[in-house]
């Protein structure tokens, strides 16, 4: 455990160093404060935004949207991905379609999604989902394919019926990588937030950032971006910790 304390120490020191450097650069005037406000200014802005502009409310709204979209995406991607990876014709049928959609630029699909889903919550969730599902489903399919065939053959030779191999072998065997891939795609989901929340916007961090950008309030933009960063960092750490807890058997 001394190792992990070391890591935290190094991580904190590096972050602090970066912040100090940033502060120095901003104060030196080498970069106009209009483009790069000092971290102290950003933190002060962050504070007033929490106190006066309901930043925490917006953060809560965004978090909720991201998680709803992500959970829908995951709930669909896991079974579909497992089927794609295990049943050859399903994979062959879906893979080209999904690969195609995966490369479509989400921002260009916004008007289309408004036609389908209107300007309410569903469009925002849909856009976030769009950025997550197609990535995750392919990762899941790959994870399933990467399960060693020995595991399946072991199951077959103790008499496991086909579908039980999905639940008793594929799923547990891929679970650790699945959780990792979910953690990564959850991060991607956040990057689509700006795209989703500037559509018929009324709340959320994406809306706050975009509005601040519209009025050239760089400290506010930074504060919004940093809020997303902090949420991302915390989420990531929590999932990593859970991963270590759930998959202790991986430790040699």
């Amino acid at each position: 455990m001394a190792g992990s304390r070391h890591r935290i120490l190094i991580g904190t020191a590096a972050s602090l160093g970066l912040i100090l450097l940033w502060e120095a650069v901003s104060r030196s005037g080498a970069v106009s404060a209009r483009f790069l406000p000092a971290p102290s200014v950003v933190v002060a802005t962050l504070w007033t935004m929490i106190a006066e502009r309901g930043l925490l409310y917006h953060a809560g709204v965004s978090t909720l949207r991201v998680w709803v979209a992500f959970l829908i995406a995951a709930a669909m991607a896991v079974p579909i991905g497992i089927l794609m990876g295990s049943v050859r014709w399903i994979g062959a049928a879906l893979e080209p379609v999904i690969d195609f959609i995966r490369y479509l630029p989400v921002p260009a699909l916004v008007p289309l999604s408004i036609i389908w889903f209107g300007v309410g919550e569903s469009t925002k969730i849909f856009l976030l989902w769009l950025g997550t599902f197609f990535q995750l489903v392919l990762l899941v399919a790959d994870d399933v394919r990467r399960v060693p065939h020995e595991f399946h053959e072991t199951a077959m030779t103790v008499g496991a019926p086909g579908w039980r191999r999905l639940t008793d072998v594929s799923l547990p065997a891929m679970l650790p990588t699945l959780v990792d891939n979910m953690r990564i795609t959850l991060g991607w989901c956040w990057t689509y937030l700006i795209i989703a929340e500037i559509v018929a916007a009324d709340s959320g961090l994406g809306f706050v950032i975009w509005q601040a950008r519209r009025f050239f309030q760089t400290p506010e933009v930074m504060a919004g971006v940093i809020t997303i960063g902090i949420i991302g960092l915390l989420t990531d750490q929590v999932i990593r910790a859970a991963h270590r807890r759930w998959f202790r058997y991986l430790v040699r």
């Binding site: 916004v110 008007p111 289309l112 300007v119 500037i198 559509v199 009324d202 509005q211 519209r214």
Partner: peptide, 10 residues
């Protein structure tokens, strides 16, 4: 708020 004309028309 919606700045994108295409989205408004949709």
């Amino acid at each position: 708020f919606e700045d994108d004309r295409a989205n408004v028309m949709a």
